[in-house]
């Protein structure tokens, strides 16, 4: 064998990540580098419309890349009303951040229901999830009875500590009756009132009395709004035990 032939034979060797072809053939040119392969699959996965196929493809990647793959698909799919929340949750396979994304994209009208879902699904980030639910609640300018009912739910202390920011906007100097949580609210409100820099950060309601910009806790406008009929319900059995 000549030297030239040896060189050719040696250079034909292409090291690859793993031994198999990538789950998405179009990603073959990136197979030698797991970060590139992950990036390619994440880009392509959003075009896959079969949940089992999504799981099968993502599971070919190493653990962290697999999570990112699932999150990328869920993020994209959650913008489409064609997907039920339960379907999206199946792809998450118990990963809290992924499930948090799903809950944020399929919010129920009822605050107690939202809190129950946070506790059931998004365990690690349950408080953050509840915080977002509180933000959504106060953006509807609830009456005192609604606030009292909300304070009686799990995480009532968290809610009671958060609503003084809302009360400031209402130019109120006392807390409503929040049952056992009233004192938490009062302490927090007094602290806010003693801070000369404290000011209302909520946007005023529109002409129909609805909030114009509820804080969802992350960059607004990056998650597409639901379709004309609103997002589908997460569906399934009674809260919080969604399938």
């Amino acid at each position: 064998m000549s030297l030239a032939a040896l060189l050719l034979a040696a250079c034909a060797y292409v090291p690859t990540f793993g031994t198999a072809e990538p789950a998405i053939p179009a990603c073959a040119p990136y197979a030698a580098n797991v970060e590139l392969l992950s990036s390619c699959i994440n880009r392509e996965i959003v075009n896959v419309l079969d949940i089992r196929a999504v799981s099968a493809i993502c599971s070919t990647l190493p653990t962290e890349a697999e999570k990112e793959c699932r999150r990328q698909w869920v993020w994209s799919a959650s913008m489409s009303p064609q997907w039920e929340g339960v379907d999206l949750l199946k792809v998450c396979v118990g990963e809290d951040e992924c499930e948090f994304m799903v809950l944020e994209s399929r919010v129920p009208d009822s605050y107690p229901e939202a809190v129950a879902r946070c506790d059931y699904w998004v365990k690690t980030f349950a408080e953050d999830c509840v915080r977002h639910a509180v933000n959504r609640l106060v953006s509807t300018y609830p009456d005192d009875a609604t606030l009292k009912e909300a304070a009686a739910q799990p995480h009532g202390e968290l809610l009671a500590g958060l609503i003084p920011s809302y009360l400031i906007c209402q130019k109120r100097t006392t807390c409503p009756d929040l049952g056992a949580m009233t004192s938490v609210c009062t302490d927090s409100l007094n602290q806010l009132l003693s801070d000369s820099n404290a000011h209302c950060t909520m946007e005023p309601p529109d002409e129909n009395g609805n909030s114009t910009g509820a804080d969802q806790g992350f960059a607004p406008g990056t998650h597409a709004p639901p379709g004309p009929q609103g997002p589908p319900e997460l569906g399934g059995p009674p809260a919080p035990a969604m399938p």
Partner: peptide, 24 residues
């Protein structure tokens, strides 16, 4: 967000959530 702005499509929103969400 500066880095996220280099991306396109649905990757942008996912990236922005990743860099700005308090819980992350």
């Amino acid at each position: 967000n500066l880095l996220c702005s280099l991306l396109t499509g649905t990757e942008v929103g996912n990236c922005q959530r990743r860099v700005s969400a308090a819980h992350l």
